[in-house]
Design a protein around this nucleic acid. Sequence first.
RNA 1: UAACCGCUGUGAUGCUA
Length: 311
Amino acid sequence: IVLQTMVLVAFTRAGLMRAAKDTFESMPEIDLVCCNAIVSSFCMNGYLQEAKRFLEKLPCQSLDLLNSLLSGYARERNIENALCLFKNMPQHDPCACTTVIVMLIHEGKLTEAQSVFYKMPHKDLISLNTILHAYASNGYLYEAVSLFEREMPVHDRVSVTAMISAFGQEGETSKAKEIFDQIPQTDLVSWTSLLSCYVQNGCLESARQIFESMTQRNILSWNTMLCGYAQSGHLEEAKNIFMNMPQRDVVSWTAFLTVFCNAGDIDSAFEIFLRIPQKDSVCWNAMLTTYARNGHLEESKRHFDTMPKHN
RNA sequence: UAACCGCUGUGAUGCUA
């Protein structure tokens, strides 16, 4: 059993689910370990109907397996099955609750997410952070602050990052900075969110200082700084960032395109647009906006008709 | 029983409304 289980697991890690399943079915005897292995790998690879069928045959269904299936449903946004499974689970651990809460938030059902949250017997830091972030990013600043200050015994970088973007969206840059200064251990994400806060509020000098003092940067931090210059029409600075960044993605290209949109330089914008690898709907829209904002009705109509997708 | 490692539920960037 042990050897065959090892083979089975090797197949699942390689994504060869068919072979894993054949291995499982050829086993003369099975035990809990190999059952768990096959079912959880079905879940992780999106074979949920298979997972469910196997799971129903097992004499005892471990909470871990039910959680795996639940997160499988959540991943493919199968709300109905997820909620049904959740209701019928013998226990709701923080992991299962958080999975459902995230799914509900994703669906815009904040009230339902809240009610799952309130019923949790043990609210761990991750579930608190999840709800905090939902408040913070949906404009419920008061609720976010109150949760953060009154109901959370401890905070980590994730909690603080949520608060920074909440304050940032409300234009409270100094409160964002105040909270940032309380983080015991900052990381790239918290630095970038403070950077983004300054950028969103047009504090380009503070943004620049933050950006320069960052000990590490990734494409998101470069993009954030680029957006700051792009949105405020700082052509030279934007060019400088764009030329010096180690890598570029669609976001970088689109941000750079908007510099020319704002400057009314349609030809340069279009040149940029043509060079964007892997165009997505946002960059198509950005080009459309460039025509529309600058009074080129005919061009914008033509561009609209060539767009692969409209939203 | 403990330590370490790996996986797993939460955080940061672009157009428009």
